[in-house]
């Protein structure tokens, strides 16, 4: 195997700039998509635990639809298909005037896809709370809304901090799919550097190290959050 090492390439203009801008886009896509995924996923997840059959059915349909189509296909649907199916005026607006079309599409697509996964975590968090807690809440006169607000959601979210962390990391990694519709995020930039310089080892190593470092940092930070949100003496499923 013959290969000309040149780690210096990573610090050369413009390649260093490309890497930095790539990290910026990766974080921008991940953060915005997470806002959608968390908000929408929470609503859908709660809806799946409500007594009303139609609400539950609609929420289940949402989850099944978004989780059984590959993310890549969903991105293409949002990017190429949805603008064509919208009413004509809207479609024209989306195609001509939508600000940062690739970025926006990536955020929406990734957000909806991950929302279906977050919804499943929220649902399982709520369902893992012993039924007696619900009865105790109702017995003291709480309404269903109050029951969710003061008991089921605060306990449920605490129980699912670890899986939610891994969903966030999934969004972070999946943000690389944005390159398929033209967002120049970290993975795209590392490949672009490879194509310009033929220094694939260096470029991919740089990207890999950045991904690993950010993942480890997020994991460590969430570990702290988890300790702070701990319910003293409470062992999940302990009784």
């Amino acid at each position: 195997m013959s290969y000309n090492w040149n780690w210096g390439v990573l610090l050369q203009d413009p390649y260093l700039g490309w890497l930095i801008s790539g990290v910026g886009w990766t974080l921008a896509v991940s953060a915005a998509a997470w806002v959608i995924a968390f908000a929408l996923g929470s609503i859908v997840g709660v809806a799946r635990t409500l007594p009303n059959r139609f609400v539950r059915g609609a929420a289940t349909a949402f989850v099944e639809l978004f989780r059984n189509i590959p993310l890549l296909v969903q991105l293409f649907l949002w990017y190429f298909v949805v603008p064509e199916l919208l009413p004509e005026d809207w479609g024209r607006w989306v195609k001509r005037d939508l600000p940062l079309p690739e970025y926006t599409t990536a955020v929406v697509g990734l957000g909806f896809y991950t929302a279906s996964r977050v919804a499943e975590q929220v649902r399982s968090g709520i369902e893992s709370i012993p039924r007696g807690q619900t009865l105790a809440g109702y017995a003291s006169g709480l309404t269903t809304g109050q029951l969710y607000r003061y008991i089921l959601l605060p306990v449920g979210y605490r129980l699912i901090i670890p899986p939610l962390t891994s969903e966030f990391l999934t969004i972070f990694k999946n943000s690389s799919l944005a390159l398929t519709i033209g967002v120049l995020e970290l993975t795209a930039q590392s490949r672009q550097i490879t194509e310009y310089t033929f220094q694939g080892f260096e470029a991919f190593t740089a990207a890999t190290v950045i991904y690993v470092v950010i993942t480890l940092s997020v994991t460590a930070a969430m570990g702290l959050v988890e300790r702070r949100a701990r319910m003293p003496g409470f062992i999940a499923g302990g009784r």
Binding site: M1, K173, S175, T187, S190, T194, F201, A207, V212, T215
Partner: peptide
Amino acid sequence: NFFRSMPLILVIFWFFFLVPLIIG
């Protein structure tokens, strides 16, 4: 932990670059 912190696309790029290089 290494593979779980990498995007699959990056792994695919890695091996498309690496495998021919290693095999020659």
